[in-house]
Amino acid sequence: MNNKEFITALSKRTGRTPSDTLKLIEDFEALMTSHLEENDTIAAVGFGTFEVKKKMERVSVNPTTGKRYLIPPKLALSFKQSASLKERFNADADNMEASAEDHVSRQ
């Protein structure tokens, strides 16, 4: 599902025009971004949690050249799916493994 499809689906769900929906989406994204910039955590019930995590600096080695690099610390946005979402996608416990394997083989 790409952005266009997403907007269409959302506009259908909320009963608004796609342009209105797009505007609302932009507002909402800006709102979330501004909160995340302040290291806030956004917990969307039934979906997952957006959290800004600090990654420490580390030394990395380029395996081909053998050169070592110091990678600086950074703030990264992480997402963790909620338990309900996990259940939803893995509802069929028996089929789950098969589907996972299927997924891997597809990749």
Partner: peptide, 23 residues
Amino acid sequence: IKGYRKVTFLPETALKERINKPF
């Protein structure tokens, strides 16, 4: 441990940069 499906999120570059602004 059984395999499962997981939702991963990859933020856009612009979002990444905005969040990583302090560093």
